[in-house]
Design a protein around this nucleic acid. Sequence first.
DNA 1: CGAGGACTTGAGCCAGTTCAACTCATGTGG
DNA 2: CCACATGAGTTGAACTGGCTCAAGTCCTCG
Lengths: 258, 258
Amino acid sequence: MTALSTLHTPAADQSTTQRCSICQGMEPELHRQLQRLGRIKRYAAGEIIVGEEEEAPFVGTVTSGVLRMQKTLYDGRQLIVGLLMPSDMFGRVFSSTSNVSIEAATDVTLCCYSRAGFEILLSQFPALEHRMLLSMLDELESAQNWMLLLGCQSVTERIATFLLILRRRSAKLQSDTVQCLGNSVTIPISRRDMAAYLGTTVESISRSIQEMARQRVLGIIDPQHFRILDERRLVELSGSDDTEMKLSVPVERTLRTA
Amino acid sequence: MTALSTLHTPAADQSTTQRCSICQGMEPELHRQLQRLGRIKRYAAGEIIVGEEEEAPFVGTVTSGVLRMQKTLYDGRQLIVGLLMPSDMFGRVFSSTSNVSIEAATDVTLCCYSRAGFEILLSQFPALEHRMLLSMLDELESAQNWMLLLGCQSVTERIATFLLILRRRSAKLQSDTVQCLGNSVTIPISRRDMAAYLGTTVESISRSIQEMARQRVLGIIDPQHFRILDERRLVELSGSDDTEMKLSVPVERTLRTA
DNA sequence: CGAGGACTTGAGCCAGTTCAACTCATGTGG
DNA sequence: CCACATGAGTTGAACTGGCTCAAGTCCTCG
């Protein structure tokens, strides 16, 4: 498993580990240990980091780019059960095999830890294990929200929800960069991945988006960049009022799985 | 919140806590503490134990009966994101509000712990918190499996999967009771709940089941009791070969959310 | 016995899929 | 630099699985 294409694996430097979500507000000793354990790896879009049902010798966090966690049925149908964005953790601790495949949806930079080493840290630092538990609880909530979306919402509702989540997520990340002034949304993945994430087809996505553009809800700059022209309407189309969004989706990990 | 109908809340006795999944193989002191903290509560089918977005002052385990965790959209559409069977835990630790509503799908007996008290135990006994983490990891996997089912499988596949999971689950529970000799499956919930769980409608479920009966895959004893006549075919219909089922779904919590 | 709920069955309809064609943008080799 | 293949996205047209609505059966309970 894992890539032949890993470019290099230097020890993680200060600036890398500092940005990892799991390292925030950690005791200095733990922070040192994580830094010692971390290795930077790069993968090109499309590469498989961990295969489904495969031995996964490491876990880690996304530094840049987007990972997809996906599952495949025997006949090839597949669903993306989560997108992992910078600061999100990937990999399965306390189990030798992952039940999802983890693939690079774009070119990515990862900060990897050997699974064994990370598990030792978990047992040595209960605070780390506690953070891990909180993180899993959030992720489970997100998964439940996503089930609701897959189980009972229309394609348009799914897309509107996705766009709102994306915008929130990028607003969060770039609060300093101030690049996303106001209402533009960048789709970081292909239509194919969007379809696999939303449980539909590229054709249906295309039609839905073009229809939203016709109704002046969205402005299409190019296939990857939209402008939100009528936010109120987009929230309506998403089928969950704004209030509910704020309450039910932990902002921190909004994109993780929901 | 919580029921007006709680019949009584005696302290949990030995036999109750002994059967809880979280108490298995625990140090005696922790076991004593849990026993002291636990209260038995009973609810009738249909009662709401915890409302969505509501303060939930306790967590607990199911002793008998079935709970449903469900989410509701503003316009009334709803999905059951998990069924909780005896030995499963319910409730959300480390958050004051639940993001799902928890309701009695049948008459149930619960062993409840005050959330605050339980969280104190979690911090005092790292082993308990560790078990909790493992349990959440399993549940997350199940949730991902269920997303795959909701996102890309047909109604027939969903039902076949559900039946196989049910049978496995009950085989597990009743390994001693030897009541389910061989191939009968008991549906512990209504068609309405089944539809909400499988992301479809009662009509579609009915049609699918009758069709499986016509094809001699199932024998219908009564609406709640089927006999599996052609297991191979049922597994085929479920759309995931037997091997995959065994690998991907942790047997222990098979029904939890997947 | 009548009301009401759970389940089944039928008939028509529609959101979304499938299949196919077309438009671009990108890249490759002669 | 062009010819051509390749892949991503869009659009059109036909088809269909599953939904909706409506009616029926059967069982339980007051």
